[in-house]
Design a protein around this nucleic acid. Sequence first.
DNA 1: TTACAATTGTGTAGTAGTTACACAATTTAT
DNA 2: ATAAATTGTGTAACTACTACACAATTGTAA
Lengths: 234, 234
Amino acid sequence: MPYTHTHRILIALDCIIFGFDGEGLNLLLVKRNFEPEFGKWSLMGGFLNEGESLEEAAHRIVFDLTGLDNHYLEQFQTFGATTRDPVERTVSVAYYALVNIEDQDMNAIRSHNASWISLHKKPYLIFDHDIMVEEALKRLRTKAALNPIGFELLPGKFTIPQLQKLYEAIYDTKLDRRNFSRKILSTKLLMGTGEKDMTSQTKKGQLYSLNTHEYVRQQKGNFGFLPELILVDA
Amino acid sequence: MPYTHTHRILIALDCIIFGFDGEGLNLLLVKRNFEPEFGKWSLMGGFLNEGESLEEAAHRIVFDLTGLDNHYLEQFQTFGATTRDPVERTVSVAYYALVNIEDQDMNAIRSHNASWISLHKKPYLIFDHDIMVEEALKRLRTKAALNPIGFELLPGKFTIPQLQKLYEAIYDTKLDRRNFSRKILSTKLLMGTGEKDMTSQTKKGQLYSLNTHEYVRQQKGNFGFLPELILVDA
DNA sequence: TTACAATTGTGTAGTAGTTACACAATTTAT
DNA sequence: ATAAATTGTGTAACTACTACACAATTGTAA
């Protein structure tokens, strides 16, 4: 026998999908070719299905769009203003995901009319999606300052300077190259592969030489991680 | 015209209400005199109403139970396992609240069959409420280590040692009395009232003398706050 | 091969913050 | 007044962070 309460509504899920292209943070956004708000940009979203947990639904949504199965995914806030969706009342559970921008399924992305867009050039998004992005970024910053989760945005093998650029992008700041390297290596989270990076490209006519070692993720841990950073809202 | 999707469900809200009695953290729990799970303990909860935001609903639930209107309230996680409620599928948005245990409405509490129960003596709770309490405590610990929110659990005026006992209760640890006092006062968050605490009681046959000054909350701020503490999961 | 520019790794002094503890001051009871 | 309990201030040792000097490595070009 069900509850006597009657206000049953749709549960939406919206996913803020972060990617890193070596220079800055990017968002995977959908240009809507359906109503409402045809032609406007939005986050990738969907509705909760019967027999599906929130976690499963969020995972499905990211997988459908990127073809990626092995990404970091964290629920961060649920949005429930009565007027947030003009079509009908919905409550939206928001997740952010960190994916490696390189090994995605371009067909899946194209078929959803989606694009990677630099966070700095983010267009206006429908509904309350702009606020969602803002809150997701806040959470990512807090989380990444205390936990080593940034690695999810990089390929399996990467150099220390690449990692530094990632953190500089997340926090929109500059970090001291030498102290950063020392700090990262002191955590023992990384280990050298003995290989060199052969994928380097010359940029702006300048050379990009590379270190003897690349690093792969070695272990997980929780600890204060990047002390040069200030947490504004944890 | 509504969406074509059809899986409309109830939105529940569950509130983890923390109080501090001068010694340890307490939870405000409800002994159910209704089905399902008659006679078992649960968190205070309710359903989202039409025309009501999540925030408003959570506030209403805490107000109904405590008569308190001016408490700290933070959404921390939404629970959506398909089997979490045996009656029918619901998704529950969980909030935790910090209330001053002294100026509550005892009639409201009694009429809901609720009691303050020490966190250390928490009984088994129905559904996924045990997990909710665990997650709420994690979040409270992270939040209070970075932001000065613990004050919400104390009366308007309090002594430094009272505040220290509160933090020791939150983190289940001992802090150095002298360093704690210095750290708290250095934040300029508190100001002396010039009054003395007249409510002190002799305990275990020993004397409890009091400081010349009590303190009231002066301002808000965000900053790393209690460095002796280690964040396990932020 | 050599020189040179760009990049990356190691050393270290100065600074700031934390920890642990000594000691002084205050309050309360006898 | 004296003693016990409690609270406030001083400080040395330790740790961590910051900023920068300098060495080592890589890649390019004469």
